[in-house]
């Protein structure tokens, strides 16, 4: 069943006519995703690889019945693109853009509350339900359809984990990159709730990093509600305090948000935490009694 995205999801790409939008939309289509429309203001009537382009998301939705959006819009225009998708009643919005100002993300978060829309990202690789569809920039070929749900704040580190799982014979139900920004649209807890309810998902790999308290909140959720085994890894055990480690959200501030605190919280909730990034797959295999 997977979560949020399947082979029937109809997708509009905001920023389809840009270099990145065009490249990744083609890759998503190759994988079987139904890309039905593009939006670039002022380019209505044109087409990219046979996909019709519209001026607004409302127009795209009226013409194609799309319910999901994939956003490749430059940082200072990305919040506006998200708000446009919310306003048009798009249900699933995936924003790949990195570098959106935090204030814009706070405003987006206010608008999302109660709107019924789900935003994944920004600053993320997107979401893939292997064997069904992908909405993002991750390399499809490392994935296999299966029963492990994956959720992560990072891009390439997720690929690393997925690659290990696949090589150990553990396929994935859905992999969600929630992104490295301080105000993500979707939190670990949101994804864990969905995996908990998804019959295809039998266990979960969660990849966190320094900064904020999303991992601690996830630990509390797992302790109280999670019915499936969870394995975690936290990046940034050697990160110095007060420095932003690439991701806008990866910063230890005022002594808070350290890897140590997060690992302690996760372990106290019964989550197995891999000691190194090379052991994420094997830790899951052990949790499932396969190694």
């Amino acid at each position: 069943m997977a979560i949020w995205l399947d082979a029937n999801t109809r997708v509009v790409v905001q920023g389809l006519t840009g270099k990145e939008g065009q490249f990744h939309a083609a890759k998503c289509r190759e994988y079987g995703t139904k890309i039905v429309a593009g939006v670039t203001p002022g380019k209505a009537g044109t087409a990219v690889d046979g996909v019709p382009v519209f001026n607004t998301v409302v127009d795209a939705k009226a013409a194609t019945g799309c319910t999901a959006s994939l956003i490749f819009v430059p940082p200072l225009g990305a919040a506006d693109a998200i708000l446009e998708a919310v306003d048009a009643g798009i249900e699933l919005i995936v924003c790949i853009t990195e570098g959106i100002p935090a204030r814009d993300e706070v405003v987006v978060s206010q608008r999302l509350a109660g709107s019924g829309a789900r935003l994944i990202g920004p600053n993320c690789p997107g979401i893939i339900s292997p064997g069904k569809a992908k909405l993002g920039i991750m390399p499809a070929h490392i994935h296999r359809e299966g029963h492990v749900g994956v959720v992560s704040r990072s891009g390439t580190l997720t690929y690393e984990a997925v690659d290990q799982l696949t090589k150990l014979g553990m396929g994935q139900s859905t992999c969600v990159g929630i992104g490295g920004d301080p105000v993500p649209g979707t939190s670990f807890v949101d994804v864990l709730e969905a995996f908990n309810a998804d019959p295809q998902t039998e266990s979960v790999v969660m990849i966190g990093e320094i900064g904020g308290s999303a991992e601690e909140e996830a630990a509390a959720y797992v302790k109280a509600h999670m019915k499936k085994p969870v394995v975690a890894f936290i990046a940034g055990q050697t990160a110095p305090p007060g420095r932003r480690m690439g991701h806008a959200g990866a910063i230890i501030s005022g002594g808070k948000g350290t890897a140590k605190e997060k690992i302690e919280a996760l372990e106290a909730a019964g989550i197995r935490v891999a000691a190194t990034p090379a052991e994420i797959g094997i830790t899951m295999a052990r949790a499932l009694g396969k190694a």
Partner: peptide, 29 residues
């Protein structure tokens, strides 16, 4: 390293192996 998360994880595994990272560097996608 390419990617911030993988770059942090690489520093961590260097430390785990008994070394010390000289830097964090994400060369990007």
């Amino acid at each position: 390293v390419n990617g911030a998360g993988l770059a942090m994880a690489t520093m961590d595994i260097i430390k785990h192996a008994g070394g010390a990272p000289a830097n964090f560097l994400d060369v990007g996608g």
